[in-house]
Design a protein around this nucleic acid. Structure first.
Length: 402
DNA sequence: AGGTATTCACATGAAACTATTCTCTGAGTTAGG
DNA sequence: TAACTCAGAGAATAGTTTCATGTGAATACCTGT
């Protein structure tokens, strides 16, 4: 029975007309051949990095702008081009691109340097070595390169925030000791303010040049979407107003093009699954809700148990009155821990965990003073209330199971 | 009434501790010559 | 004597605890009118 219906399903799936021609165009990893609305930035960055091709050290470069404003895209685009030119003209060129946010890969000083070294064919154990040693290995590898090495560090703000500016200091200083080679740095950051609390020497050294990426406006996003949609979808699959709606929705926030594209993709998937022949504006709404929902569920499920208990406490406190305070959450949390046989963490820790939840974006907090009655955080949920029951249920399951 | 001091209930920060995972080193052991 | 084993020292890292200090405004407490 079941087997048969599954076969039917798969067969249907196979022969069903897909709305997509090439879905990969709508994935975050896709790098388009032409980058729109970033001409100024592309030219500027290209001009700064061009000396690489003549084996001269370019200025260090610092790129910043909000998420989805095309920074990574532009940088990768330029790198690709340079590598192609260098291949054609047989110019030796060493460019290393690293995203510092990747957990367990490059999110600490040690790991970043280890990762860098691995690009030069040196394998470094994940732990056990002194950091100095790793630096030495990296240093030697670069020295052997006998040329200019370009290091592109994407999302360095994450790295700096976690580990301080030591890495950058060391990386900028390493040039003074290198005899045969030189390192040029490109830092990419979402956060503009993170530069403030950085060693002045590092700051001036890193941003010999800088480029700001303004967010896309609604019009630009529309055209970007249209361009991508043309490649990704079949013809006449997208109804009037869909792209406009998608763009408008995203522009309202920060002009995050990546999000707009994702939204369009998910809308397409939903349309396909619901056997619709075209993508409608309703699908955008649905996609938006789905994305939001999945983001939350994903976070909730993958969180460590202690975090889950804290979150559950927050959600459960919610029902009683409008505002939630740390104290109440902690009391409930302690009781919950007792109930499921978990050693409760200190209040300090729980306070921190609440802070992390805010960082992730599923709650908002405001530290308020209630005068004589102390000072605390006022917590509000930034989760649509429609997903609350299910979220709670997931948490219950996760917690009771073990 | 108006002004100052207290006080609450946490927030926030820094440092230290714990446990885990991993490398490296050198001593001791074993097996083969 | 070379190869192997294994314990111990030292590192990185994540998660936590401990200790210390900060803080905004509702109240308590004065003070002079």
């Amino acid at each position: 029975m079941l087997k048969k219906s599954l076969t039917v399903f798969f067969e249907e799936f196979l022969y069903k007309e897909s709305l997509f021609v090439d879905k990969s165009v709508l994935l975050a990893s896709y790098i388009p051949e032409t980058v729109y609305y970033r001409d100024i930035e592309v030219n500027k960055i290209a001009a700064i990095l061009a000396p690489l091709l003549k084996r001269e050290k370019p200025s260090n470069l610092f790129i910043y702008g909000s998420t989805g404003s095309g920074k990574t895209l532009v940088v990768k685009h330029i790198i690709d081009n340079m590598e192609e030119v260098s291949k054609n003209k047989k110019i030796p060129l060493k460019i290393v691109y690293i995203n510092c946010k990747l957990k367990k890969v490059a999110d600490t000083e040690y790991r970043l340097i280890a990762q860098l070294a691995s690009f030069f064919g040196k394998s470094i154990p994940p732990t056990g070595l002194p950091t100095d040693e790793v630096y030495k290995i990296f240093y030697n590898a670069v020295e052997q390169e006998r040329g200019i090495v370009l290091l592109v560090l994407d999302e360095i703000d994450q790295l700096i925030k976690r580990t301080g500016d030591n890495v950058l200091y060391n990386l900028t200083r390493i040039n003074e000791e290198l005899k045969n080679s030189q390192i040029a740095l490109v830092g990419v950051s979402n956060n503009i303010t993170f530069m403030e609390n950085i060693d002045v020497r590092v700051k001036s050294s890193l941003s010999e040049e800088d480029v700001l990426f303004p967010p896309y406006n609604a019009f630009e996003i529309q055209n970007i979407l249209k361009e991508r949609a043309k490649k990704a979808f079949k013809e006449n699959v997208i109804e009037q107003g869909v792209i406009e709606k998608c763009a408008a929705y995203v522009a309202r926030e920060h002009g995050d093009a990546r999000k707009a594209i994702e939204l369009l993709r998910v809308a397409g998937e939903i349309a396909e699954r619901s056997k619709s022949k075209t993508v409608l504006t309703e699908h955008i709404d649905e996609a938006e809700e789905k994305l939001e929902r999945e983001k939350i569920f994903d976070i909730v499920r993958t969180q460590p148990k202690q975090f889950q208990v804290v979150l559950f406490s927050i959600l459960s406190t919610k029902n009683k009155n409008l505002s939630i305070y740390t104290g109440e959450v902690y009391e409930l949390y302690k009781r919950l821990c007792f109930k499921i046989g978990l050693r409760p963490l200190t209040q300090r820790r729980v306070s921190h965990i609440i802070g992390e939840f805010e960082l992730i974006g599923i709650i908002n907090t405001k530290t308020i003073s209630k005068g004589r009655y102390g000072r605390t955080r006022e917590i509000t949920l930034s989760v649509p209330s429609s997903v609350l029951p299910l979220t709670k249920k997931i948490l219950e399951e996760e917690l009771v199971l073990t």
